[in-house]
Every structure is written in C-alpha cells, then in structure tokens.
Simulated scan of single mutants.
Amino acid sequence: MSARILVIDDDPQIRRVMRSTLTAHGYQVNDARTGEEGLEELRNSNYDLVLLDMNMPGMGGMETCRMIRSSSEIAIVMLTVNNAERQKVEALDAGADDYVTKPFSTPELLARIRATLRRLPQAPGQANLQPLVAEGVNLDLSSREVTVRGQTSRLTAREFELLSYLLARPNKTLAHRELLQAVWGPDYGDELEYLRVFINRLRKKLEPDPSKPRFLVTDAWAGYRFHLPQ
C-alpha cells in the first residue's frame, strides 16, 4: 500500500507541484494551506509523512512541527529556503526527521522521502536486546519508554533506531558516518548536525544529568558510544 503524504505549504504552486509529482510516483497526497489546517487534517485522517514548509504566515513551520510532534510520531520533512546550519538544527530540534532546502530537485525530494519513511532493518543482535535497568534508568525497548527517577518519556521512531543501533554494540565507539548511514540511509554521512541533535534529545530522555552523560558518551572526533555498565 502506498504511503500517505500531507503537504503543508502556503504557496499554492508548491502544493500543486507536490501533489502532481508525488502522485505520479505512487504516493497518496493531500495538502493544507496553513499550519492550523494541517493540524486539523492530521487529527481527522491518518498519514505516514508530512512535508512541512518552515516559513508560513500565522502558525509557522517550527510551531506546527512542535505541535505535531507533541502528540504524534509521524515522519516529518521540513522544507526551508535557508541553508544555514542554525535553521537546520532548529528544525531537527523541533522534531523534524529531515529537511530539504528550496529549490530542490525531484530526485532529491523523493530520496529524502524514501529515507524518512524507511525503518531500520533489524541490526545484528538487536532482537536480543534486553531492557536496560541501571543507575536509576529503566529503558523498556518493547514499548520505547524510558523512566528516569520516576519520570517516563517515550522515544520517537528515529530516536529509537539510533539508540537501538548503539545498544546493539555496547562500549564500542561508532563513527559518525556509520551511524548516519545505518539510521538515516546510505545517502547520508556528512550531516553531523543530525547526530548532535538526536543524541542531545536522547540524553534529555535517558540521562539522569544530560550535561554529564553516563550512557551516551562522545568520543571526540571519532563518534559516539553507548557505555553499558558492567
């Protein structure tokens, strides 16, 4: 069954092009003119992915993204005209899974959509991962719930994929490129801001003190490591 995509953009030409292009490639597509309309559509119908314009009048893309992410794990790709790293980080931190800078080519957009919709194949040993209970942290992998000192939060799909990949290789430094290509796809490798944002999000949910991480350790210039207490 083809994926269902909601395009949220105030530009009618962009919406028409998106609908025509994505439909031609087998996706089911609907659109909304504003963040408010998009949120209402998401409440009433089921979608697999949202293409969300960052710069819209009224409720902007960032606020819309945060509102979506507060109640849904749907895949979100942000559309932006600004290639500055600060805005990319802001988009990822708001809850986006990926972003595409305008103007973009159809192959690039389709590749980003495929990468965002994909789910990480089960990594070697991942099926045997056990719940983590250590140092005041309880991580239930079956429900994707983390409880730290009595406070429970849930991992998003992408956070879970990244953490699972690290957990399946405990106490081993994993290079940035390996993590990016394993979790986001083979077309990735240099987008270090992705890892910084998602590692920080995981630390906020997993670490008793995110400023002094015990589990998600940075090995300078090399990569990240999940420190599993012995």
Rank of each mutant, 00 (worst) to 15 (best):
I5K: 13
V7F: 03
D9E: 12
D10I: 15
D11P: 13
P12K: 10
P12R: 12
Q13E: 09
I14V: 15
R16Y: 05
R16F: 00
R16Q: 09
R19W: 05
R19Y: 04
R19K: 09
S20C: 05
L22F: 03
L22P: 02
T23N: 15
G26Q: 00
Q28S: 13
Q28I: 12
V29A: 05
N30H: 14
T34V: 12
G38F: 12
L39D: 10
E40H: 11
E41K: 15
R43N: 04
N46Q: 06
N46S: 04
N46H: 05
Y47R: 05
D48C: 04
V50C: 05
V50Q: 01
V50H: 02
L52F: 07
D53R: 11
N55R: 14
M56G: 08
M56W: 09
P57Q: 09
P57E: 08
G58P: 15
M59P: 10
G60C: 13
T64Q: 10
R66Q: 11
R69S: 13
R69E: 09
R69F: 06
S70P: 08
S71I: 12
S71F: 05
E73D: 13
E73Q: 09
I74W: 10
A75P: 03
V77L: 15
T80N: 10
V81G: 12
N83D: 09
E85Q: 14
Q87M: 14
A94D: 09
A94V: 15
A94T: 12
G95K: 04
A96I: 02
Y99E: 00
K102Y: 15
K102I: 13
K102G: 13
S105T: 11
T106A: 08
T106L: 07
T106C: 06
P107Y: 08
A111W: 00
R112V: 02
A115L: 00
A115F: 00
L117R: 01
P121M: 09
P121G: 01
Q122S: 14
Q122R: 06
G125V: 03
A127W: 02
Q130A: 13
Q130F: 07
L132I: 09
D140W: 05
L141N: 08
S142M: 10
S143A: 14
R144N: 15
T152R: 09
R158I: 01
R158D: 03
E161Q: 12
L163Y: 09
S164I: 05
S164V: 06
Y165F: 10
R169D: 02
N171V: 13
N171L: 11
T173C: 11
T173E: 07
H176Y: 10
R177K: 15
L179Y: 02
A182M: 07
V183S: 02
G185Y: 01
G185L: 01
P186L: 07
D187Y: 03
Y188K: 07
G189L: 02
D190C: 14
E191Y: 14
E193A: 11
V197D: 00
N200P: 08
R201H: 05
R203F: 04
R203M: 01
K205T: 00
L206R: 02
L206M: 01
L206D: 01
E207P: 03
P208L: 01
D209I: 06
S211K: 08
S211G: 06
S211V: 12
R225C: 04
H227T: 04
H227K: 04
